[in-house]
Nucleic acid binder design. Structure first.
Lengths: 346, 346
DNA sequence: TTGAAAGCGTTACCAT
DNA sequence: ATGGTAACGCTTTCAA
């Protein structure tokens, strides 16, 4: 008899077929009832909706994606989930995607052996788009994704030669703003603390900072290597700066979390911030606004960046994703707080 | 001709069919080559592997899942991505799942209108399991998931009546440990700061704390409502405690992030921690170990909890998931740091 | 060991 | 507006 077919269903999942039988209509009709643009009578639509509700039917998105070729899944590859910078980014991005009906498939690149290890599985899931916040993208990957027509957007990374879209805070301009602010306070001796030495973000902030200092007639700036973007690395770098021969009056850390580590380190050595030394960071993570730190920093235009990323992925409309690779450079805002102050006469 | 069929392939995705044609074998053979347990000659397996490599073929997991009924996707519903407690949890959990070949589909419950709004879409993705870290699970949801045979594990939440598995830190025992520690330091006047008033975590910690205090002969403990688990809420609660008539000597905040807000608040009022007031939290997030805070706290057995969750999901083996709902209560460790000190004679 | 064919649950096209 | 049917890309019997 006809009933046997659906009877051997493995899991307790209701299919369109069952709803159809219940209503004595064809399975196609059930499908149409869940497609807003399909031509179906209002009456039938509500009948199906009711039956679906009763039986607990929801269309299987996975099966649907096989034919629509859209899974509604966007992969986000994130550096780590310890640095508040990344978690803030993830928070805002996930929220925006969710609002657009897209889901987030999360990949942490730090632990799982880098992007190379992740990329294949990621593509196996037929994601509609990929957001990479921190990892070395190779031209091979770019080519593969382009061939599959899977849009890739680099967030907070700029790899000029690669024909991949990128959304970035204007790090150079941010560095310049910082220099102007600190020079305006009368400081003479500066230091810049490098995060990951190969990260474009750190390099660009440094470049903007140093070049603007030079333009203000200050030709020297101590460059201190922290090795990585972390509280501990910032802490250690600050200790070295504090112990150095000529202690800087103002220190620009390449990221907030390093700057906060740095402030703690300076204070642990009895130095007052900003009394003895001014400290600034970059990002404006929530921590930076805490009264203990009150960190002067450059605010990442979070919302705007997330909005542009979603745009470039082309996930909202049914329209084809943006073909040509573009690089968006969004300016950040200088946020003045209590960690910077005027030069003290000595 | 035969070629037309695959020719109208929409996106630049290579299918098993194409690899098969390239090798002059059947599509089934390609499938078998990617199934470790299938019976296929070694020679054929390597031939397929090579051809797949050349063409850039990878099996489509989505299509596979239609028949295997396993997507390899686990949904994680997380309270928010601002509290380091949740991000730490997410970090460890994602890592463990990734190690087991499972991927994380991330849902933030705070912004998107709660679990009720999320649950339907989540199930549409045919996830192999669901981890809920913070949200109100209703019996309806439990029933629906049970019917679908989708394992659900509550992490850091205990809902006794619901026949859903849960993995939890032993909050009562943690509260007791805290009480013993602080009583041992000689303190007499205590306060407990409640996080979310309806959260079982906060209630249990409070219960353990207060009952152990009572056992030590201390019958009164100020209960202060913070309203939510956040830095700001902890800060405000601490200000109220500091301004109160009889200031407590030791304050137990229901979570680390609140405790840290509280420390900042006390210090902003000129109080020394632990000189004037001892502060403790719960979780042991990375922040808690920073020298500025050096927070005495109860360490969540992160790794162990994550391991148990993955276990209960039954995602590792092909074996059927655990049927019976179990509640795992894992004891936390008391971590002594600098935020607590002996009672000062007054 | 391999190939042919029947699904998996859906959408989309073509009739009616 | 509705029903039948062919995909989508894969796994899995069943034959050979």
């Amino acid at each position: 008899m006809k009933g046997t077919k659906a009877g051997r269903r493995g899991l307790g999942r209701v299919t369109a077929e069952e709803v159809a039988r219940r209503l004595g209509v064809s399975q196609s009709t059930i499908s149409r009832a869940f497609s807003p643009s399909a031509s179906i009578s209002d009456e039938m639509r509500t009948r199906v909706a009711n039956a679906a509700m009763e039986l607990g039917y929801q269309p299987n998105i996975i099966a649907r994606s096989l034919i629509t070729r859209r899974t509604g899944i966007v992969a986000i590859v994130i550096g780590n989930l310890v640095d508040p910078f990344y978690t803030t980014l993830l928070d805002i991005l996930t929220d925006r995607l969710q609002a657009g009906g897209k889901q987030t498939l999360l990949f942490s690149s730090s632990r799982a052996g880098g992007l190379d290890a992740i990329m294949p599985t990621l593509l196996q899931y037929q994601v509609d788009g990929i957001v990479i916040t921190s990892a070395a993208v190779t031209s091979d990957m770019a080519r593969i994704c382009a061939k599959r027509e899977t849009p890739v957007v680099l967030l907070n990374r700029n790899v000029p030669g690669l024909d991949i879209s990128a959304v970035c805070c204007d790090n150079v301009q941010g560095g310049r703003q910082m220099a102007r602010h600190l020079v305006g306070l009368g400081h003479k001796r500066f230091a810049f603390v490098v995060g990951q030495p190969d990260a474009s973000t750190s390099l660009e902030r440094q470049q903007g900072f140093v070049s603007e200092l030079a333009q203000a007639g200050i030709s020297s700036c101590v460059i201190e290597q922290a090795g990585e973007y972390s509280y501990e690395a910032g802490y250690e770098a600050a200790l070295r700066l504090a112990a150095g021969a000529s202690r800087p009056e103002a220190v620009f850390f390449a990221s907030d979390i390093m700057a906060i580590g740095g402030m703690d380190a300076f204070r642990s050595r009895g130095l007052s911030v900003p009394g003895d030394i001014s400290v600034v960071g970059f990002n404006d993570v929530p921590l930076a606004a805490w009264p203990t730190y009150a960190l002067t920093t450059v605010r990442h235009p979070w919302e705007q960046m997330a909005a542009r990323v979603v745009d470039l992925l082309g996930v909202d409309a049914a329209a084809a994703p943006v073909r040509k690779a573009v690089t968006e450079l969004i300016p950040g805002d200088l946020i003045l707080r209590g960690s910077t102050g005027p030069r003290r006469d000595q």
